[in-house]
Amino acid sequence: MSQESKHYELRFSAVGGQGLITTGVLLAEAMVEYEGLYAIHSPRYTAQVRGGPTKVDVIIDNKPIYFPKTTSVDFYLSTSQQSFKAYFQDIKDDAIVVLDSNLVDEFNDPKYKVYRLPLIEIAAKKIGNVVTISTLSLAVTSKLTGLLSLKELEDFVPKSVPRGYEEINLKAVRVGFSLV
């Protein structure tokens, strides 16, 4: 993160159970650990535990964060059409928008830097387990924003995932970094 950009807001939205909340959690923890910054994340769930729209907002700052809600989102990643629409608020004009190309409809607003990637398909088929969507998305986010390096993720991810899943998540990180 460059010296000037002191405040960065990210949003991840999905369908409950897809694993994008974990992406937000991992990103916040990694930013605190590797960059020594303040980071917060606020998950928003609905009463519907599986299948409902969910999102997590992550705020990163070099000063303590007082207001814990996003007001001007710099980066938005979504893997569900319903959730993408439901949480398309406060998105900055030049924001990076990453969409799952199989699950979110065409979106061509020139205000945004839009990336369309078949994220869930890549996780399931190319990497070999759909649960790696969390770390795959973390890698794509890190690469596009420059918030974390591949080296940092290679160190952080294996110790942050359940035992036995280190290798496959490392694979997801490397694939994610090569995608964009």
Binding site: A28, Y38, A39, I40, H41, S42, P43, I65, P68
Partner: peptide, 9 residues
């Protein structure tokens, strides 16, 4: 709810 659910340092 905000203080209880916001993950922060």
């Amino acid at each position: 709810e905000i203080l209880a659910h916001t993950y922060e340092v």
